[in-house]
Computed example of a mutant assay.
Amino acid sequence: MDAIAPTIGNSKAVTAETVDALIATITGAVKKGDTVQLIGFGSFPTGARAARLGRIPATGAEIQIPPEKTVKFATGKAFKDAVNGA
């Protein structure tokens, strides 16, 4: 928050509330299965990982790993260009 607050001209407390609200909104949308896109930054699509068989490294015992939802991140062009100095 130290870097963001002066940039937008708000206090750290107000900035923290704003960022927390943004994260909660994104999290809620992704939980519903929506893809969240932040123009110029990237998108957060959801995916699915199938159930699979795994092993416990210490014992070698097999375990069943249940299916689960996953969240991916796809970088936006503007963000990628900024990181690469273009």
Rank of each mutant, 00 (worst) to 15 (best):
24 A>R: 07
34 D>P: 08
65 I>Y: 08
55 R>M: 07
67 P>T: 07
31 K>Q: 14
22 L>V: 14
26 I>S: 08
81 D>I: 05
73 F>V: 03
20 D>I: 01
29 A>E: 13
2 D>I: 13
29 A>N: 13
68 E>S: 15
60 G>I: 05
50 A>Q: 13
43 S>Q: 06
16 A>K: 13
83 V>C: 11
19 V>K: 02
63 I>E: 02
5 A>K: 04
35 T>E: 09
72 K>P: 04
17 E>R: 14
68 E>H: 15
71 V>E: 05
12 K>T: 11
40 G>M: 00
75 T>K: 00
61 A>Y: 02
51 A>Q: 13
48 A>V: 04
34 D>L: 09
33 G>Y: 09
53 L>Q: 14
77 K>F: 05
28 G>C: 06
51 A>L: 09
47 G>N: 04
28 G>D: 14
52 R>Q: 11
41 F>R: 00
58 A>R: 14
14 V>C: 04
63 I>K: 06
34 D>S: 13
8 I>Y: 01
11 S>N: 11
53 L>D: 13
48 A>M: 06
24 A>N: 11
52 R>Y: 05
73 F>N: 01
12 K>R: 14
71 V>S: 05
15 T>H: 09
1 M>G: 14
74 A>W: 00
6 P>M: 07
7 T>Y: 02
6 P>Y: 03
25 T>Y: 08
11 S>A: 06
71 V>F: 06
21 A>V: 07
67 P>A: 14
20 D>C: 01
2 D>M: 12
82 A>M: 10
72 K>R: 13
26 I>E: 08
69 K>H: 12
86 A>T: 12
9 G>Y: 00
62 E>N: 10
30 V>T: 11
2 D>F: 03
31 K>P: 02
1 M>I: 11
28 G>M: 08
36 V>E: 06
32 K>C: 00
50 A>D: 15
25 T>F: 03
82 A>F: 02
86 A>M: 06
65 I>S: 12
3 A>I: 10
46 T>K: 03
74 A>R: 15
19 V>R: 03
58 A>P: 04
31 K>R: 13
38 L>S: 04
11 S>T: 15
37 Q>I: 10
30 V>G: 03
44 F>W: 11
11 S>P: 05
1 M>Q: 09
24 A>E: 13
57 P>V: 07
20 D>F: 00
75 T>G: 02
57 P>L: 12
36 V>M: 12
80 K>F: 01
59 T>P: 06
56 I>S: 09
80 K>I: 03
24 A>V: 01
36 V>C: 10
13 A>Q: 12
35 T>I: 01
51 A>E: 14
42 G>L: 00
49 R>C: 06
39 I>Y: 00
14 V>T: 13
83 V>L: 15
37 Q>K: 15
20 D>W: 02
6 P>K: 04
32 K>V: 01
69 K>T: 15
9 G>R: 02
49 R>G: 07
45 P>K: 03
85 G>C: 10
36 V>K: 09
66 P>C: 04
79 F>L: 13
49 R>H: 10
65 I>W: 10
68 E>T: 14
56 I>F: 08
8 I>K: 00
73 F>T: 01
29 A>M: 11
8 I>V: 14
